[in-house]
Amino acid sequence: MLFFSCQDNYKRVGDEAQKQMYPRGVAHNFRLVRTKAQKDLDSEDSASSKVIAILTSSVGENYENLSFPHMTFPEGLQVDFFDDENRKSIIRADYGIVYSISNVIDLQGNVIIESHDGKKLETSQLYYDQDNEWIFTQEKFKYTNPEDGTVMDGEGMDFYKDLSLLKAHKTNGLMMIKEEADD
């Protein structure tokens, strides 16, 4: 009787060499409320806090056990955020990642921002820096401002969360100018 044995000396590269990542937990009908204290609190203070953002999603996957902790929202998410006067603006996307260490949210696929005053931004990907309340993208976008009839297309933009301060990189578009008639 003769037996032969083979050894797998093949070095894995590319996709087949990737380590499998499994979430620490999966939450359904996920809701995360981010609050901010109205004033600095002492250890025994019980002052109220203000809601500044609410993140909701049908599924949230927790990868906080990895070296770069994060949460993913593979079925999309919505972020409602509130300004100092408690006016609500909304961000929606098909997919999202919240990075815990940097407090940055990466939104991908049909990203839409609607501000409390009707302004609207549409793009394929953008990032929301929660600490600095700053949003930015390098992708193509469409920005609509119904107050002045502006429709702007472009590529690359960064702005404050309520769309009040915009810095567009490459733009083109249509702006309506109202003229007053002389009688």
Rank of each mutant, 00 (worst) to 15 (best):
G154L: 05
N86A: 13
K119Q: 11
V98R: 14
K119H: 04
E180H: 00
Y22F: 15
N62I: 01
F4V: 15
F3N: 12
L166D: 02
L165Y: 12
A93G: 05
F159C: 07
K161R: 08
K178A: 08
K50Y: 05
K119D: 08
S164A: 12
Y22D: 09
L2F: 14
F81E: 07
A27E: 14
Q78N: 09
R31Y: 02
T171N: 03
S49N: 12
T150L: 03
L165T: 12
Y63M: 02
D42Y: 00
H169M: 12
R31H: 04
S89K: 06
A37F: 10
L66A: 06
A93Q: 07
M71E: 13
A168E: 10
S49C: 10
D8S: 08
K11S: 09
R31S: 14
Q78M: 10
G25R: 02
E133N: 11
V151L: 10
P74H: 03
Q108C: 02
D94Y: 09
Y22H: 12
E44T: 15
D83T: 01
F82V: 01
S58V: 15
D80E: 11
N9H: 11
N145Q: 01
Q130C: 07
F4W: 13
H70F: 15
H116K: 07
Q130M: 09
E147I: 10
R87V: 11
V33F: 06
I113W: 03
S46C: 06
Y99V: 01
M176E: 15
M152S: 09
I101Y: 09
L126M: 15
A37S: 01
I101F: 11
E179C: 01
V79H: 00
R87W: 07
G149Q: 06
S48V: 12
T150Q: 05
A168M: 15
R92G: 06
D153H: 15
Y10W: 08
N65W: 07
D80H: 06
R24S: 13
H169I: 14
E114W: 11
P146I: 00
A181C: 06
T123K: 06
C6K: 11
I101M: 13
V26H: 04
F3V: 07
N145R: 00
K36I: 08
L55H: 08
T56A: 10
G60D: 09
T137M: 03
A181L: 13
T35G: 14
E180D: 07
D153A: 10
I90R: 15
V59Y: 04
L32K: 01
N132P: 01
S58M: 13
D45Y: 03
I52A: 03
D158R: 05
